[in-house]
Computed example of a mutant assay.
Amino acid sequence: MSETPLLTVVVPCYNEEEVLEDTMEKLHNLLEELVNEKLVHPKSNLLFVDDGSCDKTWSMIAKESVHHPWIKGLKLARNVGHQKALIAGLEKVAEVADCAISIDADLQDDIKAIKEFLVKFHEGYDIVYGVRRRRTTDTFFKRSTALGFYRCMNKLGIELIYNHADFRLMSKRALTELRRYKEKNLFLRGIIPLIGLNTAEVFYDRKERLAGESKYPLKKMLSFAFDGITSFSVKPIRFITYIGFFLFLLSGFAFLYAFVQKLLGSADSGWTSIIVSLWFLGGLNLIGIGVVGEYIGKIFTEVKARPHYGVDIDLYTSSLTGEKSEGIEPAVLFNEEK
């Protein structure tokens, strides 16, 4: 590839005021280095997507974008979650950038790997995955549950890149293909491998978070994992069907055993066994109904075809076209009181 590509680094943000200044500085320094090495175009930029933050995140983005042309901002109308905020940024840059790199605002993912991403891009790869070498920075619980999640997804036939999150490079071609996937239940780690194209992996070591709190507590992690499973596989329903057949056969053997005992005159009234059986079958029924309900709920969400997000302020398109944000006063732009 002879011409230097225009790169946009997409950074989803939610209440990141504690780390944002440091993040902007480090990413800007990296951009300058990449431009000097002629790996990217001089007009390459950073797009910070504010996912309905409650702190000063948007104010910081907007103010920096006024003084520094390489900083762009996209403010969503409300909090829609990490995956939808990320897709908002990727869709925004798809028609402009030659390639886009997504990275979380806390910069736990090593930005030094971005140079290797671009080397792979220049070699002709459309998608470059950032893959963690090891998970030593995670707690034992998080490490073991994460590994269990990957194994479970592989068993269900869902193609995932092992130890890869959302730190990746995508070419314009890959971004165009991604926009064809219209599902509302977004699980990008599963969707991206479906695109195909030429892919490569770059390995790196994940760092400790410098400040702020993780935006993925246990509850969100479990929800995210369950969304991933139910968005790509019907095997949980099939598994419950298998259990149903197994219990049906088991109950047949139990009936035959009870019938023989009755004929032999040695039948005992088994209150405990009846209660245990009722609780077991009742719990199994509730689990089955719950899993089926999850799939029906996803169908309900898909058929409504609601948009993933709403945009409040767009400082990306306006900065590229030279237009001012219509009807937006400075106080509103910076989230300040008039």
Rank of each mutant, 00 (worst) to 15 (best):
L278S: 10
A331V: 04
V128T: 13
L86R: 02
H41T: 01
L247S: 10
F203Y: 15
H41I: 05
V9H: 01
G297R: 11
Y257K: 15
L20W: 03
F187E: 03
P307T: 06
G212Y: 04
D110Q: 07
P307N: 03
I71W: 02
K112S: 14
V10P: 08
L20G: 09
A85W: 00
V19Y: 04
V96K: 09
E37H: 11
L30F: 04
L284V: 06
R206K: 14
A97L: 05
R78I: 00
R135C: 05
D104T: 05
G73N: 04
V19I: 15
L147R: 09
E337M: 04
G89R: 01
F334I: 06
G297K: 12
T57E: 12
K184W: 02
I328V: 15
I275N: 10
R168I: 02
F245H: 14
H67D: 12
F248E: 08
S231L: 04
L74R: 01
P12F: 01
I103L: 05
F280L: 15
L264P: 02
L46H: 07
G293T: 05
K155A: 12
E18W: 01
E21K: 09
A258P: 00
E213T: 13
K84W: 00
S251C: 07
L47N: 08
D51R: 06
I114K: 06
M60T: 10
W58S: 12
V80C: 07
A97D: 02
F140W: 06
A146Q: 13
A267H: 04
L247Q: 01
L147K: 14
F224T: 12
N36A: 14
Y14K: 10
Y316C: 11
K219R: 13
G322Y: 04
K63L: 15
F280E: 01
F203H: 13
S171D: 07
D166G: 12
K63I: 10
L210S: 11
T4M: 10
K72L: 13
R132Q: 11
L188W: 01
N79L: 01
G252M: 09
L169I: 06
H28C: 08
M170A: 09
L169P: 03
N335Y: 05
I296T: 05
I114W: 04
